[in-house]
Design a protein around this nucleic acid. Structure first.
Lengths: 210, 210
DNA sequence: CGTCGCATTGATATCGCTCAAATCCGGTGG
DNA sequence: CCACCGGATTTGAGCGATATCAATGCGACG
């Protein structure tokens, strides 16, 4: 059932520096189109992917066919790394937006983790960082009010004293990250500025001091 | 500012088997009461905690004093392991429910990760598993309807075909995990049973087949 | 037998989502 | 330089799903 992967070969630029040579040697670039499946549940694990650009997702399906998204990965992230500790995939991996991926063979990847302590440490740090980030996002979405989510974001992701952030994308994208409709974020931000709780200078958003 | 830790010594039972001897030798049991701080932001990192029982949380504070929860840890989980890659804590760690903890000194812990490949692998697997779980929970909370969250939970956490789960706790606890008011979960479950989408036998909840 | 917490159901209020229209802004082509 | 276009940003209005408040039943436990 797995659709054949596009195999466009690309020059090996942009390979993350933290990958050991034993892996980069066997790696290859591919481009995938939205809707294309990288693998299906049950397929033997062959590759782990590093996402240079684009968006991918891991999905399962409810009996009625409803898609259940387990994870979304974007640029700079590793995709399907859970498969490293499994022989077969436990969900489908598919492309959401046109993506360029670095394919890393799973077997040498596992070997590198066991044999290269430096790589293992970098990998471990990456997992820990991702886990921290994910926990904070989870706690944030547990908050019921838009106001509380925005403040949570500013405090947990912000830098400085008082905390401030610089939006890298659009407000719409931020709204999606916060699990809010864009309109709700617009209004909530306006209210917070109105109330003097935050100050906004274009893409810079800052909590006011005590 | 850090309140002195309770230092009740306990017999060394219940130590997780995956910990290397180099760590268990230096470990100790403590009991902490709700409201007690294990550490404050800025404190030098001394310990990582394994939670035998209880609930702890990592928090920061908004300028107005609002508590921002970054993470909650319960029985069987490791707490404050992010501190392993930092010299100082970046948030406060405090006790939510009476807890019994195993204190693991940070320095030997880091050494063990570097020097003991087996331990490093177990640790890595644990991080990866926690990360997967957290991603699924995050995607779930991103769903706006109670119905969708329940179905997502059944598909992503359920076992078998069609997916089924056995509730280990109360429905209230499940509701909290789903980010719903308990009443909403009661009603949603009743509706799903009514509609024939799920079957419920006490704590066993199962999706119906196609 | 009394108490406590969970489960359940009812009634109501509220907040955020949705649909809509107007404006702004950057980029593009004439 | 200007007209035009598409997407983001705002603001308005209304609806609906969920939270909240309440009351009852139930079972465990002392």
């Amino acid at each position: 059932m797995t659709r054949a992967l596009p195999t466009t070969q690309r020059p090996k630029n942009g390979v993350p520096a933290w990958l050991p040579r034993s892996l980069t040697g066997a790696a290859g670039w591919i481009d995938v189109e939205p809707g294309a499946y990288l693998f299906h549940a049950g397929d033997p694990v062959r590759w782990v992917y590093w996402v240079e650009q684009g968006v991918l997702k891991l999905v399962r399906y409810a009996p009625d066919g409803t898609e259940i998204v387990l994870h979304r990965a974007g640029g700079g992230e590793v995709f399907a790394e859970a498969s490293l500790s499994a022989g077969r995939y436990h969900c489908d991996g598919l492309c959401v937006r046109e993506s360029r991926l670095l394919t890393l063979p799973a077997v040498p990847f596992r070997q590198a983790l066991r044999n290269d302590p430096d790589f293992a440490e970098v990998w471990r740090e990456g997992l820990a960082r991702a886990l921290r980030s994910q926990r904070a996002r989870y706690e944030r979405l547990g908050l019921k009010s838009a106001r509380a989510r925005v403040l949570h974001y500013l405090v947990s992701e912000g830098r400085g004293e008082p905390p401030a952030i610089k939006l890298s994308g659009t407000l719409r994208e931020w709204a999606e990250e916060l699990g809010l409709a864009p309109e709700t974020l617009y209004r909530t931000l306006a209210d917070l500025v109105q109330a003097g709780t935050v100050i906004r200078n274009g893409p810079i958003i800052q909590l006011t001091a005590y």
